[in-house]
Design a binder for these strands. Structure first.
Lengths: 338, 338
DNA sequence: CTGTTAGCGCCTTCAA
DNA sequence: TTGAAGGCGCTAACAG
């Protein structure tokens, strides 16, 4: 009995001995305009044919696809995954469907997907930016497509943003290390570039330590994938401050993983030989040696809030650009114990 | 200068002083049918208006949305994420776009999304099943929508599958533990239910140990979220075989995490007090204590192959149901050392 | 080589 | 309370 093609509204109309209009009304919650009899017939027909309206056609009609485009820099990153989880939840609640695109940290993928999303007529976009420059931006500015950025801003691009309160977070983290009696601190991040989150975290780190003149403050930029460079930065920091209590702050979760690996290679134990604190909570943080102290971001909320904001825009809200930050929570473990 | 609405094919036609057909031809690679002059005018118009065709409208026309629906049980699971990565790559290569749905391990979400995907007229579906019963199945059977399962099969549902060679993998894992001189082995999994992967792994475990009568073989089913139960299972296993060399096999990555946490709570050290081997590679496996031995699945390839298969079906391939398995790779670390 | 026409499945006037 | 007609953006005959 398997019906080949999907049933269309006309099929239902025919089966219910009604006009297409009535079906349409039935579908759009205007049931109060229909007679009991009609209602029953339609109900039956819909069920029989297992009919469901084509969102494509509907979208074509009045541009409401109920699709929200997501551009995620790296789906492999736990941060992104948890944000995605919040995004999913919010979409579900608001009646949208997320169209997920993974740019794999490549700028041209970003451009490609941006185009694609527009082709699918998404009603809004949520972006965890990687590069995003020139062309991509111009196009976006013109098409007044609602868009909100997650985590990172895009330089010189006015747009809603939702992310972490980097200053608060980095300050909290730094002060914790000061409290724990560390005398030399290294802030480790990927190359700063124009990535505001890295810069803000570093600035707050510096600003905080400016209040503690006795403590050495350093920072280094290392590429995530180059373990030799990381080893080197860590080794040098360690030898340079031999005899002192010292600690490393890693600017994000992916980097923390590499740092931990590097320390292991170098034979340094976090907690005893060197302090370690990483941005982003890690599911395995408690299992690695004496545990790793982390600064946990409310990732789920961030994702959820991002969708709320983009939906607000979709629904015509024209308030000025809005920047929404959430505060992080320090989770203390063995790696920063006295 | 920002143009409000998106340009349509008609706009372009007007701007290029051409008919819509010519534009359409231009877009669909039938440029050879167009005169130089026309081509140039169109090219310019398209660029000027930053036009890109609506995939919605196109889809409406001849049912080719170039969309592939993805139903992922738990996007938070690293396994799924890596599979997703392969899926993404394959989609890109084949010219499809993945529509990702996260069911959050809830069966009704699964149903909901299944409907949704059909509404969006996806051309095929890739599913990492959670429950998927009755209704959902019937609907799917009828709509001859190409579909391939990842990892798990659905009971009594004939469908292409791609996943791990569970027998090979579990056998390899078990033999490794035998080789390492363990005398009592516990196979730990979530409740078996009808999940074929769990059952197959357990069977192979049992079958392998049948060849080594001297070795104790046990298994236990524990809910992922109930740490008390896990603690208990582990504690009992440990005390029951006091004085023997014993090891635990965890049936998947998420469980391995819980097992590691549990062992830590119990004050048992993997490697020295008890052996540990987990299905699924974990990025932190080397960092947890002496390291955790894992059975790594070729996740990326699995995802890639799944899309290849579904695309094959989309393109009209009618070969009999196909089951594609990849073999796992044992990565030995400290947790199973002598 | 190029344009006209007729839908794809749906929603929205507008009439009945 | 119901239905017929037109059009969303695009493609595919079918003429010129």
């Amino acid at each position: 009995m398997a019906n080949k093609a999907r049933a269309t509204i006309s099929d239902v109309a025919k089966a219910a001995k009604a006009g297409k209009t009535s079906i349409s009304r039935y579908l759009n919650g205007e049931k109060h305009l229909l007679s009991e009899a009609m209602l029953a017939r339609i109900e039956k027909a819909v069920a029989d044919l297992d009919y469901r309206p084509s969102l494509m056609a509907r979208g074509l009609k009045h541009g409401r696809t109920r699709l929200i485009g997501l551009i995620i820099a790296d789906i492999t990153n736990p941060y992104s995954v948890h944000v995605l989880s919040g995004i999913e939840a919010a979409c579900r609640e608001k009646g949208f469907t997320p169209l997920v695109c993974n740019t794999n940290n490549e700028v041209n993928q970003e451009l490609h997907y941006l185009d694609l999303l527009r082709s699918y007529q998404v009603e809004g976009i949520v972006v965890n930016a990687v590069g995003m420059r020139e062309e991509g931006l111009n196009r976006l500015q013109q098409s007044a497509l609602p868009m909100v950025l997650i985590d990172r801003k895009i330089p010189e691009f006015a747009c809603d943003v939702v992310g972490l309160d980097n200053t608060q977070a980095a300050t909290t983290a730094t002060e914790h290390l000061v409290d724990q009696g560390f005398e030399a601190l290294l802030f480790l991040s990927e190359p700063l570039g124009t990535v505001n989150t890295r810069r803000e975290r570093l600035s707050a780190f510096r600003a905080t330590l400016a209040r503690y003149p006795g403590i050495m403050a350093e920072n280094a930029e290392v590429p995530l994938a180059d373990s030799a460079v990381i080893d080197n930065a860590l080794r040098q920091f360690h030898t340079r401050h031999r005899g002192m209590r010292k600690a490393v702050i890693s600017a994000n979760g992916a980097l923390t993983l590499q740092v931990a690996r590097s320390l292991k290679r170098l034979g340094l134990h976090w907690g005893s030989d060197i302090g370690l604190l990483g941005f982003d909570e890690l599911e395995w943080a408690e299992l690695a040696g004496v545990g790793i102290t982390t600064l946990k971001q409310p990732t789920w909320q961030i994702g959820f809030a991002a969708v709320e904001q983009v939906v607000r825009r979709i629904e015509g809200n024209h308030e000025p650009i809005r920047e929404q930050v959430f505060s992080g929570e320090l989770i203390v473990r063995g790696s920063t114990a006295r």
